[in-house]
Protein backbone atom coordinates (compact mmCIF):
# COMPACT_ATOMS: atom_id res chain seq x y z
CA UNK A 1 0.00 0.00 0.00
CA UNK A 2 1.12 3.49 -0.84
CA UNK A 3 1.53 6.14 1.82
CA UNK A 4 -1.87 7.10 3.18
CA UNK A 5 -3.37 10.24 1.69
CA UNK A 6 -5.65 12.52 3.60
CA UNK A 7 -7.70 15.67 3.48
CA UNK A 8 -7.49 18.05 6.40
CA UNK A 9 -10.42 20.45 6.60
CA UNK A 10 -9.53 23.36 8.84
CA UNK A 11 -12.85 24.99 9.67
CA UNK A 12 -11.09 27.94 11.26
CA UNK A 13 -10.07 28.98 7.75
CA UNK A 14 -13.38 28.28 6.08
CA UNK A 15 -15.33 31.22 4.71
CA UNK A 16 -18.32 29.20 3.59
CA UNK A 17 -17.90 30.13 -0.05
CA UNK A 18 -18.94 26.65 -1.18
CA UNK A 19 -16.39 26.60 -3.99
CA UNK A 20 -15.53 23.12 -2.77
CA UNK A 21 -19.14 21.98 -2.98
CA UNK A 22 -19.47 23.27 -6.51
CA UNK A 23 -16.04 22.09 -7.66
CA UNK A 24 -16.95 18.60 -6.52
CA UNK A 25 -20.21 18.73 -8.43
CA UNK A 26 -18.46 19.94 -11.51
CA UNK A 27 -15.59 17.50 -11.48
CA UNK A 28 -17.81 14.56 -10.72
CA UNK A 29 -20.53 15.74 -13.10
CA UNK A 30 -23.24 15.56 -10.48
CA UNK A 31 -26.41 16.97 -11.94
CA UNK A 32 -29.20 19.30 -10.93
CA UNK A 33 -30.72 18.85 -7.53
CA UNK A 34 -33.77 20.64 -6.17
CA UNK A 35 -32.91 22.66 -3.09
CA UNK A 36 -35.02 22.94 0.03
CA UNK A 37 -35.75 25.92 2.26
CA UNK A 38 -33.38 25.50 5.18
CA UNK A 39 -33.88 28.93 6.68
CA UNK A 40 -30.22 29.74 6.21
CA UNK A 41 -27.64 29.65 3.41
CA UNK A 42 -27.03 25.94 3.69
CA UNK A 43 -28.22 23.65 0.96
CA UNK A 44 -28.77 20.80 1.19
CA UNK A 45 -29.47 19.58 4.72
CA UNK A 46 -27.78 16.22 4.17
CA UNK A 47 -25.23 14.67 1.91
CA UNK A 48 -26.99 13.44 -1.18
CA UNK A 49 -26.17 11.33 -4.16
CA UNK A 50 -25.26 14.59 -5.90
CA UNK A 51 -23.63 16.43 -3.01
CA UNK A 52 -20.44 14.83 -1.76
CA UNK A 53 -19.05 17.99 -0.17
CA UNK A 54 -21.52 19.86 1.96
CA UNK A 55 -20.82 23.17 3.61
CA UNK A 56 -22.68 23.48 6.88
CA UNK A 57 -23.69 26.87 8.29
CA UNK A 58 -24.15 26.85 12.04
CA UNK A 59 -25.23 29.97 13.92
CA UNK A 60 -24.22 29.86 17.54
CA UNK A 61 -23.90 32.65 20.07
CA UNK A 62 -20.43 32.98 21.60
CA UNK A 63 -20.12 33.18 25.39
CA UNK A 64 -19.52 36.91 24.88
CA UNK A 65 -23.01 37.23 23.43
CA UNK A 66 -21.67 37.98 19.95
CA UNK A 67 -22.73 35.74 17.17
CA UNK A 68 -20.52 33.03 15.77
CA UNK A 69 -21.27 31.60 12.37
CA UNK A 70 -19.49 28.30 12.26
CA UNK A 71 -18.76 27.21 8.72
CA UNK A 72 -17.74 23.69 8.02
CA UNK A 73 -17.15 21.91 4.79
CA UNK A 74 -18.12 18.35 5.52
CA UNK A 75 -17.21 15.28 3.52
CA UNK A 76 -16.83 11.50 3.69
CA UNK A 77 -14.30 10.76 6.39
CA UNK A 78 -12.61 7.84 4.63
CA UNK A 79 -12.51 6.10 7.98
CA UNK A 80 -9.70 3.70 8.73
CA UNK A 81 -12.42 1.47 10.17
CA UNK A 82 -15.21 2.18 7.75
CA UNK A 83 -18.74 1.19 8.60
CA UNK A 84 -19.80 1.39 4.98
CA UNK A 85 -16.98 -0.79 3.77
CA UNK A 86 -17.62 -3.43 6.40
CA UNK A 87 -21.31 -3.44 5.63
CA UNK A 88 -21.06 -3.89 1.90
CA UNK A 89 -22.20 -7.38 0.89
CA UNK A 90 -20.95 -7.17 -2.68
CA UNK A 91 -17.41 -5.90 -2.18
CA UNK A 92 -18.32 -2.77 -4.13
CA UNK A 93 -16.84 -0.65 -1.37
CA UNK A 94 -13.11 -1.06 -1.18
CA UNK A 95 -10.04 0.58 0.21
CA UNK A 96 -7.65 2.01 -2.34
CA UNK A 97 -3.90 1.79 -2.20
CA UNK A 98 -3.92 5.32 -0.79
CA UNK A 99 -6.11 4.38 2.13
CA UNK A 100 -9.22 6.04 0.79
CA UNK A 101 -12.63 4.37 0.67
CA UNK A 102 -14.34 4.15 -2.66
CA UNK A 103 -17.48 2.60 -4.14
CA UNK A 104 -17.07 0.64 -7.32
CA UNK A 105 -20.11 1.71 -9.29
CA UNK A 106 -19.88 -1.34 -11.50
CA UNK A 107 -20.24 -3.73 -8.62
CA UNK A 108 -22.70 -2.01 -6.29
CA UNK A 109 -26.14 -3.55 -6.54
CA UNK A 110 -27.96 -0.92 -4.58
CA UNK A 111 -28.81 -2.82 -1.42
CA UNK A 112 -28.30 0.47 0.49
CA UNK A 113 -26.92 -1.20 3.56
CA UNK A 114 -23.95 1.15 3.51
CA UNK A 115 -26.33 4.12 3.65
CA UNK A 116 -27.45 3.14 7.11
CA UNK A 117 -24.07 1.87 8.14
CA UNK A 118 -22.12 5.12 7.85
CA UNK A 119 -21.75 6.77 11.25
CA UNK A 120 -21.73 10.18 9.56
CA UNK A 121 -24.64 9.91 7.17
CA UNK A 122 -22.41 10.19 4.15
CA UNK A 123 -23.47 7.53 1.68
CA UNK A 124 -26.55 8.28 -0.39
CA UNK A 125 -28.57 6.30 -2.83
CA UNK A 126 -28.98 7.37 -6.42
CA UNK A 127 -32.36 6.39 -7.85
CA UNK A 128 -31.21 6.69 -11.44
CA UNK A 129 -28.16 4.52 -11.32
CA UNK A 130 -29.57 2.37 -8.55
CA UNK A 131 -26.26 2.54 -6.75
CA UNK A 132 -24.82 4.10 -3.63
CA UNK A 133 -22.79 7.28 -4.01
CA UNK A 134 -20.37 9.24 -1.94
CA UNK A 135 -17.15 11.20 -2.14
CA UNK A 136 -14.62 9.23 -4.12
CA UNK A 137 -11.68 11.22 -2.75
CA UNK A 138 -11.42 12.11 -6.41
CA UNK A 139 -10.19 8.65 -7.14
CA UNK A 140 -9.53 9.49 -10.77
CA UNK A 141 -7.50 12.53 -9.82
CA UNK A 142 -5.34 11.01 -7.10
CA UNK A 143 -4.46 8.16 -9.39
CA UNK A 144 -3.19 10.72 -11.85
CA UNK A 145 -1.13 12.77 -9.50
CA UNK A 146 -3.71 15.46 -8.82
CA UNK A 147 -5.27 16.50 -5.56
CA UNK A 148 -9.03 16.44 -4.96
CA UNK A 149 -11.08 19.00 -6.86
CA UNK A 150 -12.55 20.44 -3.67
CA UNK A 151 -9.15 21.08 -2.11
CA UNK A 152 -7.92 22.60 -5.34
CA UNK A 153 -10.84 25.04 -5.46
CA UNK A 154 -10.67 26.15 -1.86
CA UNK A 155 -9.43 29.74 -1.84
CA UNK A 156 -8.30 29.84 1.78
CA UNK A 157 -6.60 26.45 2.03
CA UNK A 158 -9.26 25.42 4.45
CA UNK A 159 -9.10 22.06 2.71
CA UNK A 160 -5.57 20.72 2.61
CA UNK A 161 -4.52 17.61 0.81
CA UNK A 162 -1.43 15.54 1.35
CA UNK A 163 0.12 12.61 3.16
CA UNK A 164 -1.74 11.84 6.33
CA UNK A 165 1.23 11.83 8.68
CA UNK A 166 2.39 15.24 7.44
CA UNK A 167 -1.05 16.76 7.60
CA UNK A 168 -1.62 15.54 11.14
CA UNK A 169 1.55 17.26 12.26
CA UNK A 170 0.51 20.49 10.60
CA UNK A 171 -2.96 20.22 12.08
CA UNK A 172 -1.63 19.75 15.58
CA UNK A 173 0.50 22.86 15.27
CA UNK A 174 -2.49 24.81 14.02
CA UNK A 175 -4.58 23.78 17.02
CA UNK A 176 -1.85 24.98 19.33
CA UNK A 177 -1.69 28.32 17.53
CA UNK A 178 -5.43 28.75 17.68
CA UNK A 179 -5.55 27.88 21.34
CA UNK A 180 -2.87 30.48 21.98
CA UNK A 181 -5.02 32.99 20.08
CA UNK A 182 -7.89 32.33 22.43
CA UNK A 183 -9.93 29.72 20.60
CA UNK A 184 -10.10 27.49 23.60
CA UNK A 185 -12.45 24.93 22.06
CA UNK A 186 -10.28 24.39 19.00
CA UNK A 187 -9.78 20.68 18.53
CA UNK A 188 -8.98 18.06 15.95
CA UNK A 189 -11.61 15.57 14.95
CA UNK A 190 -10.49 12.21 13.69
CA UNK A 191 -6.79 13.01 13.43
CA UNK A 192 -5.81 10.47 16.06
CA UNK A 193 -5.33 7.08 14.47
CA UNK A 194 -5.59 5.41 17.84
CA UNK A 195 -8.88 7.21 18.42
CA UNK A 196 -12.32 6.42 17.13
CA UNK A 197 -12.72 4.43 13.93
CA UNK A 198 -8.98 4.02 13.74
CA UNK A 199 -8.71 7.65 12.69
CA UNK A 200 -10.27 9.47 9.77
CA UNK A 201 -8.39 10.01 6.53
CA UNK A 202 -10.49 13.11 6.07
CA UNK A 203 -10.13 14.80 9.42
CA UNK A 204 -11.14 18.18 10.71
CA UNK A 205 -10.17 21.08 12.87
CA UNK A 206 -13.24 22.28 14.73
CA UNK A 207 -13.72 25.47 16.70
CA UNK A 208 -16.37 24.03 18.96
CA UNK A 209 -17.33 20.64 20.23
CA UNK A 210 -18.22 18.11 17.53
CA UNK A 211 -21.88 17.97 18.45
CA UNK A 212 -22.22 21.68 17.62
CA UNK A 213 -21.52 20.66 14.05
CA UNK A 214 -23.87 17.70 14.27
CA UNK A 215 -20.95 15.30 14.42
CA UNK A 216 -21.04 12.37 16.83
CA UNK A 217 -18.74 13.02 19.78
CA UNK A 218 -17.53 9.49 19.75
CA UNK A 219 -18.67 7.64 16.65
CA UNK A 220 -18.86 3.90 16.93
CA UNK A 221 -18.16 1.36 14.30
CA UNK A 222 -21.58 -0.25 13.82
CA UNK A 223 -20.05 -3.66 13.24
CA UNK A 224 -18.74 -3.64 16.80
CA UNK A 225 -22.18 -4.88 17.81
CA UNK A 226 -22.12 -8.00 15.71
CA UNK A 227 -20.36 -10.16 18.27
CA UNK A 228 -22.61 -9.38 21.24
CA UNK A 229 -25.77 -9.35 19.16
CA UNK A 230 -24.85 -12.70 17.68
CA UNK A 231 -24.15 -14.21 21.07
CA UNK A 232 -27.52 -13.05 22.32
CA UNK A 233 -29.12 -14.45 19.17
CA UNK A 234 -27.45 -17.78 19.77
CA UNK A 235 -28.74 -17.69 23.32
CA UNK A 236 -32.20 -17.01 22.05
CA UNK A 237 -31.80 -19.80 19.49
CA UNK A 238 -30.76 -22.27 22.15
CA UNK A 239 -33.70 -21.37 24.33
CA UNK A 240 -36.17 -21.65 21.48
CA UNK A 241 -34.58 -24.84 20.14
CA UNK A 242 -34.45 -26.53 23.49
CA UNK A 243 -37.93 -25.25 24.26
CA UNK A 244 -39.28 -26.78 21.08
CA UNK A 245 -37.56 -30.10 21.77
CA UNK A 246 -38.96 -30.10 25.29
CA UNK A 247 -42.41 -29.15 24.07
CA UNK A 248 -42.47 -32.09 21.67
CA UNK A 249 -40.85 -34.56 24.02
CA UNK A 250 -43.13 -33.85 26.95
CA UNK A 251 -45.53 -36.69 27.77
CA UNK A 252 -49.19 -36.64 28.19
CA UNK A 253 -50.38 -33.31 27.04
CA UNK A 254 -52.93 -32.94 24.39
CA UNK A 255 -55.15 -35.47 22.72
CA UNK A 256 -54.20 -38.49 20.60
CA UNK A 257 -51.67 -38.31 17.84
Amino acid sequence: MARTLAMFTDTSLCIGCRACQVACKQWNELGLELPEWTGTYQNHTHFTDKTFRLVRFIEEPKPSGDLAWLLMSDVCKHCADAGCLNACPTGAIYRTQFGTVNINQDVCNGCRYCVSACPFGVVSFNENTGTAKKCTFCNDRIHNGLGPACAKACPTESIQFGFRDELVGRAQKRVETLKAMGFKDAQLYGADSSGFLGGLNAFFLLLSKPSTYGLPENPKLPQKNIFVDSLLSIGSALLVGIGALVAFRQRGTGGEA
Binding site: N86, A87, P89, T90, N109
Partner: peptide, 24 residues
Amino acid sequence: DLGVPVRFMNMVMTFNPRSPMSMG
Protein backbone atom coordinates in the same frame (compact mmCIF):
# COMPACT_ATOMS: atom_id res chain seq x y z
CA ASP B 1 -35.68 -4.13 -3.88
CA LEU B 2 -32.12 -3.81 -5.18
CA GLY B 3 -31.13 -0.71 -7.06
CA VAL B 4 -29.62 -2.91 -9.76
CA PRO B 5 -31.46 -6.23 -9.54
CA VAL B 6 -29.32 -7.90 -12.19
CA ARG B 7 -26.39 -7.54 -9.84
CA PHE B 8 -28.03 -9.71 -7.20
CA MET B 9 -25.38 -12.31 -7.84
CA ASN B 10 -22.69 -9.89 -6.69
CA MET B 11 -23.81 -10.71 -3.16
CA VAL B 12 -22.71 -14.28 -3.50
CA MET B 13 -19.48 -13.45 -5.28
CA THR B 14 -18.04 -12.14 -2.03
CA PHE B 15 -17.96 -13.54 1.42
CA ASN B 16 -17.69 -10.82 4.03
CA PRO B 17 -18.04 -12.10 7.59
CA ARG B 18 -18.09 -8.49 8.87
CA SER B 19 -21.27 -7.84 6.95
CA PRO B 20 -24.43 -9.43 8.34
CA MET B 21 -26.01 -8.78 4.98
CA SER B 22 -23.36 -10.78 3.22
CA MET B 23 -23.78 -13.57 5.73
CA GLY B 24 -27.52 -13.29 5.40
